[in-house]
Design a protein around this nucleic acid. Structure first.
Lengths: 152, 152
DNA sequence: TGCATAATGACAATATACATGTCATTTTGA
DNA sequence: TCAAAATGACATGTATATTGTCATTATGCA
């Protein structure tokens, strides 16, 4: 919430569109998960493992930029559902590697495939040059808004 | 959190950038409020009144798309700080119009001015055509992600 | 005009998505 | 080798809301 667009500055408007966009995106993700037993946070764990391969809880936390204690909760849910399993970690005996089970791998692959298809449909008529431009602007804006705090 | 970019689909990447962008933006807003006595949610109330003029608590809730009960809390804080005041509402005797006080008006104007200046600085070298394109893409994406849920 | 219904402020309880603190047990690195 | 860091587990705290309820008006329509 907290969004009101006041001036005619388009960059400012992009900034204030970030919340509505995120909410629309998260709602779409939730709808996509409705017929699975996945929650959004379990999906996040599976997605990291799917994208980056096996890793420990602290590694996942670093990737998601949230605290390891909360990631532990998320991971424990995926373990309980049989979507991930613990494997011996040669680099650390007390911190097992988390890996997708076959079930987990199939599920996250299917979820992501559907999401991609949805976005594809939604953006079918957008010129790909425009999409590239938009992505570049959004990335730059994000990066600079972050930096601005660091250097002051 | 919950963000990992996996495929080379740029529209999909824009969707997943929405959370980092929003977080960067909100952090920047918070930094901007650091030397005031405003909180982010008080700022939201002032911004609506500044943009749209006097209105009741339920009206503000509609504008911010959050429940009136929570907006009431936010508004009461701005009343306690002397940034807004209640005016008789000719259209409804039990639901006063909220209006900015002079202090409140000056404060929100200054805050927004600084935010605009920051965004201006940050985007100084971005071609304005690119910014327009990006805004258009972001708006369309948001709208369609919302719609997709409504019609299914 | 009267009366059912809706709107409003106020307050309490609950939910979600995290962060923070602590502890015992390893594990690591200087 | 041993102090410091990492890890899992668990408890508690916090910000940002939603939901429920109630008493008190307002409102709209028969």
């Amino acid at each position: 919430m907290y969004i009101v667009i006041m001036q005619n500055d388009e960059l400012y408007q992009i900034v204030w569109m970030s919340r509505p966009l995120m909410q629309a995106a998260e709602a779409a993700v939730e709808r996509g998960l409705a017929d699975t037993d996945l929650t959004v946070r379990m999906r996040a764990v599976l997605e990291v493992l799917h994208a980056e391969g096996d890793m420990t809880v602290p590694d996942i936390a670093a990737h998601l930029d949230i605290k390891r204690q909360y990631v532990q909760v998320m991971v424990n849910e995926t373990l309980a559902s049989g979507l991930t399993r613990q494997c011996p970690n040669p680099r650390h005996k007390r911190s097992p590697l988390l890996a997708l089970t076959d079930t987990g791998r199939a599920l996250i692959a299917q979820v992501i495939e559907r999401e991609m298809a949805l976005v594809q449909t939604i953006g079918a008529d957008l010129p790909s040059a425009d999409v590239s431009t938009a992505l570049r602007v959004v990335r730059m804006l994000t990066e600079r808004l972050r930096k601005e705090g660091a250097e002051i």
